[in-house]
Computed example of a mutant assay.
Amino acid sequence: MKKVLFFAAIAVLGFTSAEAQVKLGFGVGYAIPSGDVADFTDGGLSAHFELGYGVTENIDVSLLYTGDFLIGSELTAGNGQASVSVGNVAVATYMVNGRYYFTESGFRPYGSLGLGLASIGAIEVDGSSAELSASTSNFAFRPALGFKYGVLNMNAAYLSAGKTGEASVNDISFNIGLLFTFGGQ
């Protein structure tokens, strides 16, 4: 049994040769709401983390986590009193992401597509009361266009996270981050 495990380990190491590339990336950006969520939010913060594998020199596959926090406020005055209403939406996505690089070295523009699950939560604060909307999980997709130069990674992405209640939750984000490659050439 020990010999079988030993030869299996040697075989696995043989398949993950010197050409194997592990990818580790993270970044932050600005998210602009679109769809129905744009009616009550103004914009917010976007962040992402990914861990992946370079299948070829031009193709990466990764597990991608993104978190978008959109916030909006409205100030109303009436009957001699002012009222502030604040609403926010938090969207967390867990995706499998594929990326295709159009060039092999230097400045590397790419297109990518992420497919997975989005978890949406919303909080509405009106004056002194707060209301937590129920969390919703939906299918989500995230196409993106960007470039990588060295370890610098910049992209613009569109996130479609489905609906919560009757409101569609979508956003466009502009991100800057770092994408490290370990192994390979």
Rank of each mutant, 00 (worst) to 15 (best):
D60G: 05
Q81R: 12
D42S: 11
A31R: 05
D60L: 09
L132T: 15
L113C: 06
H48V: 07
G52T: 04
L63D: 03
A122K: 14
L152N: 09
I172R: 04
D42A: 08
E131K: 00
F7H: 09
K2C: 05
F6K: 13
N170V: 04
V151M: 11
F182Y: 13
F7W: 11
I176T: 15
Y30K: 09
F102V: 03
L152H: 08
S17N: 10
D68P: 02
M95H: 11
V91S: 06
V91R: 06
A161L: 07
A134N: 15
F174S: 01
L24D: 13
Y101K: 07
Y94A: 13
E124M: 11
V89A: 05
N97I: 00
G54H: 11
G162C: 09
G114K: 13
V169R: 07
N175G: 08
A140T: 08
L179K: 10
G177A: 14
N79I: 05
G127S: 01
A140K: 07
G80I: 03
I71M: 08
S128F: 10
G121F: 00
F102H: 01
S62A: 14
R108D: 02
A31T: 05
G72C: 01
D68S: 08
R142W: 00
T76G: 08
M95G: 07
H48M: 15
S112R: 02
L113I: 11
N153A: 05
G127N: 01
G177F: 15
G165I: 00
G25M: 02
G177H: 14
V96S: 10
L63S: 11
A47K: 06
T16K: 09
S83D: 08
Q21L: 11
L63K: 09
G35L: 09
T136P: 01
L179T: 06
L45Y: 06
S137C: 02
A161P: 03
Y110P: 00
N153I: 01
I32H: 09
A140D: 03
G44V: 02
L45M: 03
G114A: 01
F26T: 09
F7C: 11
S119T: 13
V28T: 14
T16M: 15
G183K: 04
S119A: 10
S105C: 02
A20V: 13
P33Y: 00
G121T: 14
F147Q: 03
A82I: 11
N138I: 04
S83Y: 06
V61H: 12
F26P: 04
T76S: 10
A77C: 06
S85W: 01
S17L: 02
G177N: 12
E74I: 02
Q81C: 06
Y110I: 06
